[in-house]
Nucleic acid binder design. Structure first.
Lengths: 218, 218
DNA sequence: TTATATTTTTAGACTTATCTAAAAATTCAT
DNA sequence: ATGAATTTTTAGATAAGTCTAAAAATATAA
């Protein structure tokens, strides 16, 4: 079943929203995520249901069918492989690649993406630490937790972000909180939710916001 | 001025048609080249004229304005750089890359394409021998002639094709007529327009059709 | 040079993805 | 559990790019 650029963006958004809240996805949440009016979302949901990509009943929110899930994972695979290409081969910074990958992910060729995968030496994660599905759509999810869920004394490696905005990524870069660094929780401040971590043999304070969006593999 | 995917295809088509016949481009020739009805072409020509990309007067055919020419050359630059990438880095064959480049050429980022150019080490020609415009839109056209315009005794290097169809490129590949090979004209047969050339120290007969579409630098 | 053929344009319609405004369904709070 | 707030859907409209059918302009040929 052929999918348009737009349909692909809806499927991807539904996939991500489902994994954020682990529940059926509401019209409004899609509307917000795609910056599109709810009325337009409803129209598209009907279309995607007709094509068999989602389970949709009026007013009940949606879930992806198997074929919808597969499509979404294909697009995510393409997005993340292009991001690796842009950072590793073309020397883009990790905060510059999202929008470009957003366009490249819609180029439609299985051969192309598999050859790109090979050229990049079958990377397991994209520049933000997110796992890359393999050519069969298998996505191995690593055990990660946001910093604010760790206990004092816990240690681990920075291995992903929950928030992908340019601003956040640039902040992390500037303060040395980059993928692969080892950190340890020194203290958690109840008052404002901030966390004191040890990184590079020094103590560093991290705000609640950052702690919630920085993922650690233990 | 922003251009849609479709507008870009029209501009590119007009550019190529103009360089084929060296005259103003007719509605019907665009219609045929894009596989779109003439009525639709007329609509689009009005739009492109409004945007300042073409000179258009009813029934008179069109020419590109400076800004239209610039847009067209940008797209051609992107198309040809992506073709080099696909062949040199991803190991596609020269007859497999056209359709993919046709999609990739519409990805809109000057930084991306300049970084790609650098990554590929600033190639001068694409895998079919066509020259790649530089980042300022300067396109240096090499002195090339189709084989059927050469005289007996002339020699040169195969450096491009006029016809880009898969079938033709595969035929050339199979018979060893690839870019960079040196050839010499041994004889020209008036009867059927075929040409006998010397290549790899052997004589080889080439049909009129092939002779017309294989370009030699002398 | 006038009739015929060809090319190009106009007119009106369709599809996709979007919008606004208003109606309907659901959820929430008292 | 019922009235208010929120969410979702319906109805009708718009823009981009395409189409067919028919009219108008241009080119060609006797």
């Amino acid at each position: 079943m052929i999918t348009s650029y737009t349909e692909e963006n809806y499927l991807k958004a539904i996939y991500h929203l489902h994994h954020e809240k682990n529940a059926s996805v509401s019209t409004n949440s899609i509307s917000e995520s795609l910056q599109t009016r709810a009325a337009s979302v409803t129209d598209m949901l009907k279309k995607l249901a007709d094509k068999g990509f989602i389970n949709y009943a009026k007013y009940q929110g949606v879930t992806l069918t198997d074929s919808g899930k597969q499509k979404a994972i294909e697009i995510i695979r393409k997005h993340r492989l292009w991001e690796v290409f842009l950072v590793e081969k073309l020397n883009f910074k990790w905060d510059e690649v999202h929008d470009l990958a957003e366009e490249l992910e819609h180029i439609n060729s299985e051969i192309l993406i598999n050859k790109l995968d090979e050229f990049l030496d079958f990377p397991k994660n994209d520049p933000h630490g997110d796992p890359i599905p393999d050519k069969n759509g298998v996505l191995k999810s690593q055990e990660v937790l946001p910093i604010h869920k760790l206990q004092i004394g816990d240690a681990g490696i920075i291995s992903g972000v929950k928030e992908h905005s340019k601003g956040f990524l640039q902040y992390l870069e500037k303060t040395g909180l980059t993928l692969g660094e080892t950190i340890k929780i020194v203290d958690k401040i109840d008052f404002d939710g901030s966390v004191i971590i040890n990184i590079h043999q020094k103590e560093q304070n991290i705000s609640r916001e950052v702690a919630k969006n920085l993922l650690i593999a233990i």
